[in-house]
Simulated scan of single mutants.
Amino acid sequence: MPTMAGSVRRLLLTPSLSEVTFERRGFPATPTETAQHLEAIPQAVLCGFEWALDTRSLWELERRLSLVRPEQLGFAYEGATMACTILDAIRGGRGRRARDLLDGPGRPHLFLAYIGIGFAMARLPRPLWRRVLPELTGSSPYHPTMSWLAVDGYGFDRAYFDTSRWVERQHVPAPYPWQGRPGYFHRAVDQGIGRALWFINGARPDAVAAAVRQFEPGRHADLWSGVGLAATFAGGISREGFRELRGSAERYRDEVALGMVFAVKARSWAGHVPEHTEWAANALGEMSVDAAVALADDTAVRGGESGADPQYEVWRQRIRAHFTSLPD
């Protein structure tokens, strides 16, 4: 049963499902089946967001989220984490909603939950960002290393909802010292923008490649890794479409394969690997899902390692090196 305060918050903060459709966003027309598949993803995010605003307890939120079909469940947790992060921020960062969600039922969906934190960042003033990342009490090998996905989520959100500025005019945001690394901030943002390009261009490999080429060349690698992650996790194309995507990436095939590995790991960690993710692993990395998961695990950065680059980027470098070392 929703609370009165929760209902008011939902009405004030939640856009309608139609707001995220391709037609409303002004994205190019794409075949109906593909559009419906891709549009269902941000709609699942919005449902999770609404439920987290409305519910009285974590138990009730978990029960609602459990009704979402497995392929969409991670996206619903994105939205729920976004809402919990905003509610915690409204309390001056003293709330525990996001922490309790990610320490509890959201733990298998941690990769996407970080992205949900990034969605919240897009709606919060920067002074509040220093408290958006919860201190998780449960053990997780991916916290806080993969919290750079929150910055990725911020980039995705801005590209999706303010496309003219962030994609057409190629806006570069001011640095922010996420994990004390302001110099890496824009690179993680670009990974999120790359993910958004997959949706903005209707999962059409040729159109996505053309969109990436419009950016300054120094940004192409991170954009392509975002494309690979989005294509592998979200899908929207056939087995042959993934092979076309690999060809379209040309000299950035290793970056697309890097994004694929992270997406496969996220799907595997959540306990559900859809067929399109298997197709992506085979086409983009010429490997099985199990091999991609093993690569992610074997290259993972262990606690205590430090260096010039954030641990997240070190992990990316190790995965990329695997594909770079392979013969053409």
Rank of each mutant, 00 (worst) to 15 (best):
L87F: 04
T85Q: 05
R94E: 15
D88A: 09
A83P: 06
Q72M: 14
Y77W: 13
A76Y: 07
F75Q: 03
G92D: 14
L73Y: 09
A76W: 05
L87H: 06
R94W: 12
L73C: 10
L102M: 14
R99H: 11
T85A: 12
D100W: 02
G74M: 08
A80Q: 00
Y77F: 13
I90H: 12
R99E: 15
T85C: 12
D88W: 06
L101N: 02
G92Y: 05
L101D: 08
G93A: 12
A80P: 05
R96N: 15
D100R: 06
G92P: 14
F75W: 03
R91L: 15
A76M: 04
D88K: 05
G95T: 08
I90M: 14
R91T: 12
A98D: 04
T85K: 01
T85L: 05
I90A: 12
G92V: 09
C84G: 00
L102P: 11
A80G: 02
R99Y: 05
L102I: 05
G92L: 03
A98S: 14
A80H: 00
R96H: 11
E78L: 09
R96D: 15
Y77V: 15
L73R: 15
A80N: 01
Q72N: 13
R99I: 11
R96G: 14
G95M: 03
D100T: 03
D103I: 05
M82L: 04
A83Y: 00
E71G: 12
